[in-house]
Design a protein around this nucleic acid. Structure first.
Length: 220
DNA sequence: CACCAGGCCCTAT
DNA sequence: ATAGGGCATGGT
């Protein structure tokens, strides 16, 4: 299989996943932190705690006003609660400069935004790009551990450099928010179903396309 | 019991 | 530069 066919194949298998990352933009910047190396179900629990204790119309401002000990209690189900509380606070401190108004943030150029986000302690490339793509609707491809695993399993490409992988996808696909949102979602859903650490290639619809069977890997 | 999950930072080579 | 460890809960 060629990389340019990858998206279409995933779409055929799983159907459209739409925006995929649930929640309002305000919720997404929070869950982007909470989901770091964490099961999504636990993120939902933590997010429910936050939404039940905080006025929904001013989520970010309200959360910023809470003392750390309180935030720790709320996000406990998401794990790593001490470090994640600090990371959330760092992000909220940055958003405070824009009066917590994400639509104001959206006016900045993507590369500037990305640099700003990456300066925040606790926000790495994947978290920054998830915020850019899903909360701010900027056309940037999100790379995660699943993406690397699928590249290896399906295309026999072993790349560890985040930016190289991102570049690979972004040079083979047009810069389109909807496409990138759905593509990343499809990759995660496919990996969870068929390409977990203990592979289920036997029932994977792509099994005949995988490098295990066919060593042919055209890129373009 | 062990391992995994929608990462990131810090430290020691 | 880069491998390894810590962070922590809940599911399988």
């Amino acid at each position: 299989m060629r990389l340019t066919e990858f998206y279409r194949k995933l779409l055929e298998i799983h159907g459209p996943v739409g925006k995929w990352w649930p929640g309002t933009p305000e919720e997404i910047v929070i869950t982007a932190i909470l989901t770091q190396n964490t099961n999504w179900k636990n993120v939902e629990r933590a997010m429910e705690n936050i939404k039940s204790k905080v006025r929904k119309n001013n989520l970010l401002k309200e959360l910023d006003s809470l003392p750390e000990e309180k935030v720790v209690e709320l996000i406990k189900p998401a794990g790593f609660f001490n470090i994640k509380t600090k990371r959330l606070k760092e992000l909220l401190k940055f958003l405070r400069e824009y009066n917590y108004d994400l639509s104001r943030l959206r006016n900045l150029p993507t590369h500037i935004l990305r640099e700003r986000l990456l300066k925040i302690k606790g926000i790495g490339k994947e978290t920054a790009d998830a915020i850019l793509l899903y909360a701010l609707e900027k056309p940037i491809f999100v790379v995660d551990s699943y993406t690397k695993r699928l590249l290896k399993r399906i295309f026999n490409i072993e790349l560890n450099d985040y930016d190289k992988i991102q570049e690979l996808f972004m040079t083979h696909y047009p810069e389109n928010v909807h496409l990138y949102q759905e593509f990343h979602g499809l990759i995660v859903e496919h990996a969870k179903k068929f390409c977990s650490k203990t592979p289920k290639c036997g029932v994977c619809p792509l099994k005949k396309e995988c490098c295990h069977v066919s060593q042919m890997n055209g890129l373009s």
